[in-house]
Design a binder for these strands. Sequence first.
DNA 1: CGCTGTCTTGAGTACGATCAAGTACGGTGG
DNA 2: CCACCGTACTTGATCGTACTCAAGACAGCG
Lengths: 248, 248
Amino acid sequence: MASSSHCLSSAAHRSIRRTCVNCALSELCVPVGLDQQDMERLDQLVDRQQPLPANAHLCRVGERFSSLYAVRSGCFKSYRMDREGRERVLAFHLPGELMGLDAIYPGVYQSNIIALDVGGVCALPYNDLSHLAAQIPRLQEQIFRLLSKDLSAYAWLAGDHSAEERVAGFLLDLSNRYRERGYSDRAFNLAMPRRDIANYLRLATETVSRVITRFEREGLIRTERREVQLLDLDGLNQRANYCLQVSG
Amino acid sequence: MASSSHCLSSAAHRSIRRTCVNCALSELCVPVGLDQQDMERLDQLVDRQQPLPANAHLCRVGERFSSLYAVRSGCFKSYRMDREGRERVLAFHLPGELMGLDAIYPGVYQSNIIALDVGGVCALPYNDLSHLAAQIPRLQEQIFRLLSKDLSAYAWLAGDHSAEERVAGFLLDLSNRYRERGYSDRAFNLAMPRRDIANYLRLATETVSRVITRFEREGLIRTERREVQLLDLDGLNQRANYCLQVSG
DNA sequence: CGCTGTCTTGAGTACGATCAAGTACGGTGG
DNA sequence: CCACCGTACTTGATCGTACTCAAGACAGCG
């Protein structure tokens, strides 16, 4: 909506001009590996939107697909409704991650995306991005890779894991992603309620709760509401029983 | 390996020169929507490999990723092994479909791909393809779309469906894909044994067998070993309980 | 203080897995 | 031709994990 060159009244705008060049997430996000000149071309098409309040929708199933969204801050959740109106959580998105990739094929958003807390996104108009990608091989490459990466993530979710494997895998996945972002991989805050975790892992809320309690009793983790500490990464890895873990 | 311009001794080679332009699958495969000139450029990088015998591996987990593979004929299966050495079927691939997309991100094949019966593939060297895609916007677009399509497929597999929903969904998925290929969507041959279907759907072989028997008793389908007839598509759709089905 | 929503804990249940047996088909060799 | 075998598939009986239903604990907030 508002481009960062206008309305410089708010504190956020006064600090530094928000560009991909300045963005701490550019090493994780789309522009990874671009030189300054290409980054500036990308910069011009990025629409840095106003922060969304918690529980605000970024897009909804069925809307015409126009932009991919990159998380700038906060945590987002994408989900669908099944025929009976039950929610199906598909993914959680941390800063630096790209959302809406599954909408490219059908040209219509395939999921609702909602902010779990206040969160900011950059909108990347798909047509422009696709056009630019044709001119910047590294950008095209990066989009291929991000799509491919999501495939691996879904492949894990689609595996037939036990409740323990799922919960342990979920915690380790978050741990890895937080580490990549420069945060602690041993202690972090779950942005989402247990219900959403359970839904994402295709378990009942009660089951997630029980497994967490069990892990806690065994000294693998410590929890205090949504604060989590991972005390024994090796032990968790054993419980997760990861068959194939892609790093980086 | 052998390019089609050499060793024109076999019957297959004598008939017509095998090119993307001539290929009946080009409407499903990578070159969808390309004009003749662009198709010929794509043609030059395609490596039309010798047919593989049944149960021959096309690639294995951990091998350096070099090419995507398009199915020309037959049916392929991609799978991994988990830590305990149990097989995990990830996908079945019909003619016109692209395999190996999940290897782009890590640069190493993420799955073993095996021919279920005699099958032919075209190898698409990724670097060349990626390079060409940067020059042909429609090609780049098509690769984005194929990757995005796979995301939706995994999303279904990752859902928490009952055994009946899974089997019904599987049969309908095959039905749709056969229809797209010009085959009957009401009667077709399952290229894979029950064990592989069960593994793919994360069910026990016995459960798949039981569900099929149940569907047959209820008049939804008829089966004769691997031959399947879908008698009541609406009924199956109800059982599948599809929340979101992408066409095309 | 009670209200609300989230989370935890407990008891009974159901779906699908596992174990086990039996059947049908295809191939091989006598 | 039939006997034999191995594999794929089917069917039945039992078991176990995770779901459902129900109640209680805990924090945040008016």
